[in-house]
């Protein structure tokens, strides 16, 4: 892809000092059509690199200055609002003239990037570096470089009780389920057991779903939307009273994020384990339990 657009006077590019050692993340693009590899950072990281400016060969141009910005932004699709929660600027060059390619080192020291990058249904959190060459009479040259931010936590949660619950429909179905933990790292395994205390319906199968609920708030209105991230059959056929069915669900294959609570007071993302029993007439009986997901330090 050529960045030498029509009328452009120069090409802009960025290189991180870490070079090949720069951690990368493979993430789905906004349209969820493909994966892209983005440089990966976490809060407190120093983002350090070089901006390369290459004028069109043989031509020199004047500019009003070269700058680089680090932007953290929340986009809400619902009201098409954009909120920048982070804007850091470094001036790299005062106004002048450029005839030959030149590199400008930059550094954002220990940047606080509290919110993780996130692509949701109605909201996204994005980080990018914006390099800008300003000109007085013509449009400046600007280019954005996407970053990806993940913030693993160092300590495992201190309180991590099991989830245990007895549910049922009177004289029809009574089950007790137990998941070993309420909080899971993203590479964790959900281990549990379902006890059937009373079965009077003809169950065909049982599955465990991971559901994500994204709630957004803009002004006074709030909006929630859920999606099923995973569907995992845990039982085939109808159990009888007294059976206990083991559950072991690996989280790693799924595209999960940590649980987010009121990110910048704009949105929350919550995860639920949904146990679904399907009977012979495809009626669904379910019980949803929230779990907390966290990103664990590798």
């Amino acid at each position: 892809m050529s960045f030498l657009g029509f009328g452009r006077v120069c090409a802009l590019d960025i290189a991180f000092d870490a070079g090949d050692a720069q951690p990368m993340a493979s993430v789905k693009n906004e349209q969820a059509t493909a994966h892209e590899r983005l440089p990966l950072f976490r809060t407190g990281d120093t983002i350090k690199g070089v901006v390369h400016i290459a004028p069109v060969p043989g031509k020199k141009f004047e500019h009003k200055g070269v700058r680089i910005e680090l932007v953290g932004q929340i986009e809400q699709y619902g009201d098409r609002s954009t909120t920048d929660f982070l804007t850091l600027t470094r001036d790299l060059e005062p106004a002048g003239e450029l005839a030959t390619p030149k590199s400008f080192p930059f550094e954002f020291n220990h940047v606080e990037m509290l919110h993780e990058s996130y692509h949701g249904i109605n909201v996204r959190v994005r980080y990018f570096l914006r390099a800008k060459v300003s000109r007085s009479y013509a449009s400046g040259v600007t280019r954005e470089f996407k970053l990806w931010v993940r913030n693993p936590v160092k300590a495992t949660p201190e309180m991590n009780n099991s989830i245990r619950m007895e549910v049922g429909i009177e004289d029809c179905l009574h089950i007790e389920f137990e998941y070993a933990k309420a909080k899971y790292s993203l590479r964790d395994v959900v281990v549990g057991k379902i006890y059937f205390l009373l079965v009077r319906i003809k169950i065909k199968h049982m599955e465990l779903e991971i559901r994500r609920r994204e709630s957004t708030e803009s002004g006074s209105t709030s909006h929630s939307e859920s999606e099923t991230i995973a569907k995992y059959e845990v039982m085939d056929g109808a159990p009888v009273r007294g059976e206990s069915i083991p559950v072991r669900l690996f989280l790693s294959p799924y595209d999960l994020t940590p649980t987010y609570n009121k990110v910048n007071n704009k949105f929350s993302v919550k995860y639920f384990l949904n146990l679904v029993l399907v009977d012979e007439w495809d009626r669904r009986y379910f019980k949803q339990q929230e779990i907390t997901l966290y990103r664990e330090e590798k």
Partner: peptide, 13 residues
């Protein structure tokens, strides 16, 4: 032997 409990359909199981 524990995990196979997941199949309760008699013939499948």
């Amino acid at each position: 032997v524990e995990m196979t409990r997941g199949v309760q359909q008699p013939m499948h199981g």
